[in-house]
Amino acid sequence: MSQAFTVKAEARNQVGKGAARHLRRNGMIPAVIYGDKKEPLSIALPYKETFLALHAGGFMTHVATIEVDGEKIQVLPKDYQLDPVRDFLMHVDFLRVSETSRVTVDVPVHFENEEKAPGIKRGGVLNVVRHEVEVQAPANAIPEAFTIDLTGVNIGDSIHASALTLPANVTLTITDRDFTIATVAAPAALRSEEGEADEAAATPATEVEESDED
């Protein structure tokens, strides 16, 4: 499995806001491990290691190893909470996984070769509809990211899910439609010119009749 990080944790018996505040004051962060038909396990993680792992990239798509009381547990981060003001990591939820586990995750979408997209070279704007795509994948083979090549993409073009290259045993969770991932929109100046041209074309010509006065 691709490893995000390995960390030693402490089992915690006390839960609630007061206990969580006490942990954070002591450089720890509350977390919970659940899944695999086992009782949820409340743990405390070292704050610094967990925070650095979160910001190292790929936190939500990499399997981690948490050691609790000598037991090594394979987990996948499923959710985390940040303080909305201080960006302080408050809590993390983990899901137990194994070599045979399949998980549902959001995989980031990256774009390349913007300089080879005629529409963007003409001033078009890449409008990203989905920065992430939800897939089902083996826990030990979650894609790092999907990369979409913009070569040849023009103004007005749309990029759909069918443009993604899915690894073996990885499937999209949305299967009933070829959903849009991004579009290339016309620049504001071009939209304004086209709008004026359309308005002019839609305005009927007015004939002015001159009458002779006796």
Rank of each mutant, 00 (worst) to 15 (best):
D36V: 04
T147F: 13
V103T: 04
K38D: 11
H131R: 12
V170A: 08
T175Q: 14
V128N: 08
F59C: 14
V103Q: 02
F5K: 02
Y80K: 08
N127Q: 14
V135P: 00
V7A: 05
F179W: 07
V128Q: 05
L166P: 14
A161L: 00
L150S: 04
A117F: 00
K48N: 13
S98R: 03
M90E: 13
H22F: 06
T100G: 05
L76M: 11
R86K: 11
Q74A: 11
T175M: 11
S42L: 09
I120F: 05
R177M: 15
F94P: 02
P204I: 01
P138Y: 03
S98K: 07
F111Y: 13
R191G: 02
L54N: 07
M1G: 12
F88Y: 13
K37P: 01
V208W: 08
Y80M: 10
Q3N: 13
A202D: 15
V15M: 12
A188W: 08
V153R: 10
K72V: 10
E112M: 12
S211E: 06
Q3D: 12
E99I: 07
I29D: 00
V32K: 03
R21V: 00
A163V: 02
T171M: 06
F179T: 00
V103H: 04
D79L: 08
K17S: 09
K8M: 12
H160M: 01
A185K: 15
E112Y: 01
L164A: 02
A186G: 02
E134F: 10
D93C: 03
E207T: 15
G124N: 12
E132R: 12
G57I: 03
R177K: 15
S211W: 07
R191E: 12
Q81K: 05
I159C: 01
R25A: 00
E210R: 09
Q74E: 15
R25Y: 05
G119E: 02
A117N: 04
E67F: 04
M60W: 08
E199N: 15
A205D: 12
A141N: 10
V75K: 01
R21N: 06
S101T: 11
A182P: 03
P138W: 03
D93I: 04
Y34M: 14
G18Y: 04
V68W: 00
Q74C: 03
I33L: 06
G152D: 10
I29Y: 01
Y47S: 06
D83H: 11
G16I: 05
A44Q: 03
A117E: 02
